[in-house]
Design a protein around this nucleic acid. Sequence first.
DNA 1: CCGCCGTCTTGAACGCGTTCAAGAACTACC
DNA 2: GGTAGTTCTTGAACGCGTTCAAGACGGCGG
Lengths: 236, 236
Amino acid sequence: MTEPAPKTRKGAETRDRIVQAALELFESRGYDETTMRDVADRAGVAVGNAYYYFRSKELLLQAYYRELNARVAAAVADVLATERGFEARLRGVLLRKLDVIEPYHRFSAVLFRTAADPASPQNPFSDESRAMREDGIALYRDVLAGSRTKVPGDLAARLPELLWTFDLGVVLFWIHDRTPGRRRTRALIEHSAGLVARLVRLAANPLLAPLRRRAVRLLEELAADGAAAADPSPGA
Amino acid sequence: MTEPAPKTRKGAETRDRIVQAALELFESRGYDETTMRDVADRAGVAVGNAYYYFRSKELLLQAYYRELNARVAAAVADVLATERGFEARLRGVLLRKLDVIEPYHRFSAVLFRTAADPASPQNPFSDESRAMREDGIALYRDVLAGSRTKVPGDLAARLPELLWTFDLGVVLFWIHDRTPGRRRTRALIEHSAGLVARLVRLAANPLLAPLRRRAVRLLEELAADGAAAADPSPGA
DNA sequence: CCGCCGTCTTGAACGCGTTCAAGAACTACC
DNA sequence: GGTAGTTCTTGAACGCGTTCAAGACGGCGG
């Protein structure tokens, strides 16, 4: 995942020492304030050595990011196993995720800064992120599948993507949320889970079928188009 | 807007020469590939002088950004003066905007990269961007006011913000759109304008009043909270 | 034990954005 | 014209992320 996987025991140890040093410094001092020379010093190696294992400073931060994603997945599993209602599952997933990532709010800006660049492999719509994107969508497929809510056929195929986009929106909001304990983000999740659930139920109403079909058609068009040309992203 | 406004005629000329050089180089060579030394050389000044007028390279790029915004506002005025239907106004505004910014798609990544950082003044939710944000919201207040569509009272107060957020979403989509002529973004605008218009009309339906009130309450809560603590951003 | 080859490690050097102390140019007032 | 005070201009220097040519290390076939 991050260049030359160490081939020897010693190599692996050095790599670990570098990651360890980096994470400690990032955490205590912040990303921008930590220099690669600091990291190398603390790990007891030369700067060049850090670059032997990580092509860039940013990639060093990614170690954090991957770790986080794994922990989110673990934290969320338990909600998916217990809750049965769609609203409860959606809310539960988002709140758990929030709990896990909260301590890293400091870094979110840096992570997001690079994730925002369409050219960056960290961008959620990039080819390189395909696996993670699909994991995210699969998560919401599961949220839906495990609940009793019935979703109209045409919408069912697109709804997981839509919910994943909603998740991205919540994270975006979280990044910008400077209230203590991320109070606003919690309020957003608390209330919007109910709203989303109601909207999904509403979408099943036959009176609204024409509108729903229009919306689904748009989503399909964008997705199909994207597969050929660039990225399969939804809109807002 | 960008530090020491020149106090003398000569100062203003130097400043202009620097902006000019920067824009030409950015356009022909790209932002990252242009160095401040290049800019200074082409403008016939010392590096330090460029920094006397612009505190950073990024601020130099902002010259572009502000210029663009002004041109968008101008291009859009004509739509607002002629069109009367809400849908046509919304679609027209977005398409015009797209036409104006299209030639600068190259830079959008760089602009967005910094706009994404919550700590950056260029961030659309920052205090420093308050003026531009409010201009954007005002634009959509105008889109609504000039149309015949009737919007329920409680929603009317929040809808301009919501539409501005939708606008942000479209721009985000555009940034990631790599199809020729930005075909996908055009499709998105083309279809979603109608959808949004229908949704607004739907919101007036008395049967949906409870749902609408819930949504409006959430928006109000987030806005009020934000004013006190950090930023008044909406969610997804 | 030797020599070889892949793996790992070094630190000087590069190019960049940015800062700053020094001074030149200009203006205003006497 | 002289002087004081802005305003503008300079270029060397700094700290950073990053690169790279050179060498040290370590195991394996002979």
